[in-house]
Design a protein around this nucleic acid. Structure first.
Length: 299
DNA sequence: CGATTTTGACCTGCGC
DNA sequence: GCGCAGGTCAAAATCG
């Protein structure tokens, strides 16, 4: 797929990669989603997240979301196997082998040995069953979404707090991969971050799971762009304008605005009020909350 | 002193 | 079964 071409999400069913802008005008350097553990190839794998697509908003260096229609049924739950294991009863020691013991002690010893043996056998049986169960029950894995972002900073701000829990060397790469877990209790979202070995200026961030809470970090304001890399600063204004332009082209307008007039409106807005449009974007935060009619009201 | 990072050991899945 | 690579754990170290 040609880089930087305009891409609509719904046009990419079956693709495993995506480059360009989504319908909301956010830049994807690259996006890749694995098959879900159910084996169903999904539209960008995002339906595991309910009806939300997560993406990295490069101009603001944070993770954002947009809503997408839910088109697939929910996943099958893993079949509970080995009911035998669940209904397992301890072995009974009073077997028929005890018949003519000479002393009570001897009987007790024999009983003890039999019990030990039976328990050991049961233990082995349970171990085998557990192993079989584990083998049958393929580990359910959340679908993953990967982003490639040109950045000098390895760990990109995305609105959540993360705790590093591991680091591994990556085969054929001089750069290690770092593993992070969301610090929020009961939230099992993970991500790993590594630098591309083909282009060290690119950071690959892979997210896995769905946050069970709201963002805990206050998003960086636009005035704090000095935090961003030089590359991003250079392209910030351009991206911001593209962002607004595409947003206006995609979102709902009042009925008295036809498609050509939407674009004309956006262009006029960008040319005449660049500062105001920046303020609008800043104030509205996530794009999913943006409604073009709000902009019109602000006129 | 609690939170976070580091790092070696261990676990797991997969291909041969 | 074995080896390899990715992923996770957990104790120790470091940081604020």
């Amino acid at each position: 797929m040609e880089k930087n071409m305009m891409v609509k999400m719904e046009d990419t069913i079956g693709d495993s990669s995506l480059s360009g802008y989504n319908p909301f005008g956010n830049v994807f350097d690259f996006c890749e989603v694995e098959k879900s553990s159910s084996g169903i190839m999904e539209l960008l794998g995002v339906h595991d997240y309910g009806s939300t697509l997560h993406f990295l908003d490069i101009p603001q260096q944070r993770l954002s979301t947009i809503s997408v229609p839910k088109v697939l049924p929910s996943f099958e739950t893993v079949k509970e196997c080995n009911s035998e294991l669940l209904n397992h009863q301890p072995a009974t020691p009073n077997s028929s082998s005890i018949s003519s013991a000479s002393t009570i002690e001897a009987v007790n010893d024999e009983q003890k040995n039999t019990v030990d043996q039976a328990e050991e056998e049961q233990e082995n049986k349970i171990k085998k069953l557990l192993k079989a169960k584990k083998a049958n029950q393929k580990r359910l894995r959340e679908p993953r979404v990967a982003f490639m972002t040109r950045s000098e900073v390895d760990h990109l701000e995305d609105g959540y707090r993360w705790r590093k829990y591991g680091q591994k060397a990556v085969k054929n790469s001089p750069f290690p991969r770092s593993y992070y877990r969301c610090t929020s209790a009961s939230c099992n979202v993970k991500k790993h971050v590594e630098r591309s070995f083909t282009d060290p200026s690119i950071v690959v961030t892979t997210y896995e799971g769905q946050h069970t809470h709201l963002s805990t970090v206050i998003p960086r304001s636009i005035s704090a762009t000095n935090y961003l890399s030089q590359y991003q600063q250079q392209h910030f204004q351009q991206q911001q304008q593209q962002l607004l332009f595409n947003t206006l082209s995609s979102l709902s307008f009042p009925h008295n605005h036809s498609t050509p007039s939407k674009i004309a409106f956006a262009q006029e807005r960008l040319v005449c009020n660049p500062g105001k449009t920046a303020a609008f974007l800043r104030d509205h935060g996530l794009l999913q909350d943006v409604d073009a009619s709000d902009m019109l009201k602000q006129e």
